[in-house]
């Protein structure tokens, strides 16, 4: 009907009326007035297709699979048993160990990394800064088997550093230290977490303005007052956000711990690996998925905190 009535209408009016109805709508034209085809519109999104595909294959599909399997029996029926099993006994201990390991290694690395970042930000030695940041970028991305073997070769029972210290009369293994314990894992994790903290915190520390400290000083503040009232509060959101990143990084690390301790320390990723491989008990893969769901929840909480804190940091450092 509409087409029949529009047949004799002059073209400007027709296109105006037609604009409300469909094909010739201004909203479907490009800014220059040329009609935009469906293909052209689809092409606008072509650039993000690889990312979406990657995201779907390596994050969404596995996550959905883990979550659904966590509530299924081996036969595919709904059950709470996997969740219940994951929250008691050895598995609950593994969560406690994982949280302990992640919290200590992330906390230590965060504090020391911030100190290094502050030192780098305040040094006038540009070359030193460049060397340290470059080295940090390399160390922050070193992990897995090579890192584990590097530490075994250096700080293991018969490692070079251990031998040198022994020759000097102080064998760390005689004083309770072992690279194959939770303490040893903390030391190894700090190896890649501390440089990561330096890289993450350096821009935030660079954002501290000299004028804030000078103004505080002229208002009567000592150096520590200025840090207490201005420097630390301004850095706090960035620090806590970076701490979250380190925590999740440590919480999810698997290969280094597996290679170093051979599964003797029951952290969650190692438990999941054992359950999926069926090393301990056959048919327990779904409990592994329940542990995986627990990890997702922990990381999601950390990521939410990170996002909120990052938002506050961005607001202050505009």
């Amino acid at each position: 009907m509409a087409v029949t009535r529009l047949a004799g209408v002059p073209s400007p009016a027709r296109s105006r009326i037609g604009a409300d109805r469909g094909p010739a709508a201004p909203g479907r034209r490009s800014r220059g007035g040329r009609p935009r085809s469906r293909v052209a519109r689809l092409l606008r999104f072509a650039g993000i297709v690889p990312f979406v595909a990657y995201f779907a294959v390596f994050l969404v599909v596995p996550s959905v699979s883990v979550v659904s399997s966590a509530f299924e029996t081996v036969g595919g029926n709904f059950t709470w048993a996997n969740i219940t099993a994951a929250l008691q006994g050895t598995y609950l201990v593994s969560f406690e160990k994982s949280l302990e390991l992640s919290a200590i290694s992330a906390g230590l690395s965060a504090v020391l990394g911030t100190v290094v970042a502050i030192a780098l930000a305040s040094t006038a030695n540009v070359a030193a800064r460049r060397v340290v940041t470059s080295a940090s970028a390399v160390f922050a991305n070193t992990g897995g088997l090579p890192l584990a073997f590097a530490f075994i070769a250096s700080l293991g029972n018969f490692g070079i550093v251990t031998k040198v210290l022994s020759a000097m009369g102080w064998n760390p293994y005689d004083h309770g230290f072992s690279i194959y314990t939770l303490t040893g894992l903390v030391v190894v994790y700090c190896y890649f977490l501390l440089p990561l903290m330096v890289l993450v915190m350096l821009p935030a520390v660079d954002g501290l303005r000299r004028e804030w400290f000078e103004a505080a000083s002229l208002l009567g503040a000592r150096r520590r007052d200025a840090w207490r009232h201005v420097g630390i509060p301004v850095l706090a959101p960035a620090f806590l956000a970076a701490l979250m990143v380190l925590f999740t990084d440590a919480f999810a690390a698997y290969a280094t711990a597996a290679a170093l301790t051979n599964g003797s320390i029951p952290i969650v990723p190692i438990q999941i690996g054992s359950l999926i491989e069926g090393n301990v008990l056959a048919g327990q893969q779904n409990v592994g998925d329940a542990l995986g769901l627990g990890m997702i929840v922990v990381v999601a909480v950390a990521a939410t905190l990170y996002a909120r804190l990052q938002h506050r940091a961005a607001r202050w450092q505009r």
Binding site: R209, E211, W212, E214, A215, A216, L218, L219, H229, V230, P233, V234, W316, Q317, R318
Partner: peptide, 12 residues
């Protein structure tokens, strides 16, 4: 007392 060129207010 001093007033700087800019950006001296404590942002927090």
């Amino acid at each position: 007392g001093m007033v700087f060129q800019a950006y001296s207010l404590f942002p927090n």
